[in-house]
Design a protein around this nucleic acid. Structure first.
Length: 426
RNA sequence: GCGGUCGUGGUGAAGUUGGUUAACACACUAGAUUGUGGCUCUAGCAUUCGCGGGUUCGAGUCCCGUCGGUCGCCCCA
């Protein structure tokens, strides 16, 4: 191999763009703090069984996991999603006893899925997610959606819409499952291969099919709503009422079922309507899960959460023309003129200790090229450490915004800078 | 996993039916200007066209493979 490059579907986040990430991460932390969610950091890899649960039919779990074994020990898997690990941790550390319920948790980190990459879809990507475990209330559902929605709004995205649906509780779901099976039983041969597989593995996913959506049997498919128990119906109505109260616009999409098997009742998806988002339009998505805590060995307890793709958020922000953060300009640049040895660095260090973003010239080179650096760093203040002045214990400070230059004693440098930057702020 | 498309310097890119010095612009470096930048001028800056093979007297231009991006499907954040 002659050229080294990032593995397929992975990418370097270079210094030029890392400030955007800081901005989003800061926004996330701020928002979660305001909403009362605490960060949790779980391992990037876990025992495969944490992710691959019995009867799971999703592609993510069955075809897209990075799974490996070391020394014949138990099989391990790079996390393809965040919820499983968080729920595992919740049960393992018995959070249901140690902290006040519900547990309001969030995470930010990289996930891994072996897929064919394209714009907005990577093999290593970053998710921000929240999980609100130990409460089953329509208000919790609305609160969770509101948290994600306000992040999108805080970033300045406008071309997004909230899709929402209910899968019903366990009783409703199994009732609907048999209704679906009856409905499609007669025309199974007409449907695509994926649909045939879904028919046996997870009939709900039939609703999702893009291939057969024009098929008569799809058009006449009985609505899930008719199979809902009264309890689930009421629950969904209350979720919608809460969203109304929070003034979050939404569309009910009765075909929305989501790809992960553990969802019950409320499911939602926030998609971009911007043309640039292409086929990877989902910004964040999630839903309620009734059985997961119990599955991991906890008591019967419901939770709700979502996951948001940070790369997608950035793509959309760019598409909608949102100005994102970039490297801040330097406040001060220290220039060395003549034989001044360590003085420039000492002065720069002093500036830095006082909070000024300071760049310092470290090599012998022409004044002109040093001034070029000043421009490049966009430094407002330029400290010129000249051999002659230094002998008198002085330096020149040039302040670009006011086009002024003063000669000051070494001990007065910081005071002078403070004055200059203060007058600039007014 | 399937199908389409693309891949030339730090960047944006020209490169006619394969023909022999890889255009142009920006950026960058140095000098004009031996202690004060942003303008101007001058000079320099791809033994090489993602990588590897093949066809040919000759390939950035054709063929095959491979790696990567990208678009659609699938799936999903």
């Amino acid at each position: 191999m002659k050229n080294y490059q990032t593995a397929r579907g992975t990418q370097d986040i270079l210094p030029a763009e890392v400030y955007k990430w800081h901005q989003i991460e800061d926004l996330i932390r701020q928002l979660c703090m305001v909403y009362g969610f605490d960060e949790i950091r779980t391992p990037v890899f876990e025992d495969t069984k944490v992710f691959k649960r019995e009867n799971d039919s999703s592609d993510m779990v069955n075809k897209e996991m990075y799974t490996f074994t070391m020394n014949d020990e138990d099989s391990l898997t790079l996390r393809p999603e965040g919820t499983a690990g968080v729920v595992r941790s919740f049960v393992q550390h018995k959070m249901y006893g140690a902290m006040e319920m519900p547990a309001k948790l969030y995470y930010v980190g990289e996930m891994f899925r072996y897929e064919r990459p394209q714009k907005g879809r990577y093999r290593q990507f970053n998710q921000f997610g929240v999980e609100n475990i130990g409460i089953k209330s329509p208000l919790a559902d609305a609160e969770t959606i509101a948290l994600g929605y306000s992040l999108v709004k805080a970033l300045g995205l406008n071309q997004v819409k909230v899709l929402i649906n209910t899968l019903g509780d366990t009783t409703s779901r199994s009732a609907y499952r048999s209704v679906l099976k009856d409905h499609f039983a007669g025309c199974l041969d007409d449907l695509c291969g994926d649909c045939k597989r879904r028919y046996t593995q997870n009939p709900l996913r039939l609703l999702d099919c893009k291939v057969d959506k024009e098929h008569p049997s799809m058009k006449s498919v009985p609505s899930l709503i008719d199979s809902l128990t009264d309890e689930s119906k009421d629950y969904f109505a209350e979720v919608l009422a809460a969203l109304d109260a929070l003034e979050i616009p939404y569309e009910i999409d009765d075909k929305l079922v989501r790809g992960l098997d553990y969802y019950t009742d409320t499911v939602f998806e926030v998609v971009s309507t911007h043309p640039e988002s292409g086929s990877q339009a989902t910004v964040f998505a999630g839903g309620r899960y009734d059985g997961l805590v119990e599955y991991f060995g906890g008591q019967e307890m419901s939770g709700i959460g979502f996951a948001l793709g940070i790369e997608r958020l950035l793509i959309l922000a760019e598409a909608e023309g949102v100005e994102l953060a970039s490297k801040p300009d330097a406040d001060v640049y220290v220039i060395a003129l003549g034989d001044v040895k360590t003085a420039p660095l000492a002065i720069a260090t002093q500036c830095r200790a006082n909070g000024y973003i300071t760049e310092c010239n470290l090599v012998q080179r022409s004044l002109k090229s040093q001034f070029k650096s000043v421009e490049r760093k966009n430094a407002k203040a330029i400290i010129i450490v000249g051999e002659e002045e230094l002998k008198r214990g002085e330096v020149n400070i040039k302040f670009t915004p006011s086009q002024t230059q003063v000669c000051v004693k070494l001990e007065n440098i910081i005071d002078t800078l403070d004055e200059m930057f203060q007058s600039e702020e007014e």
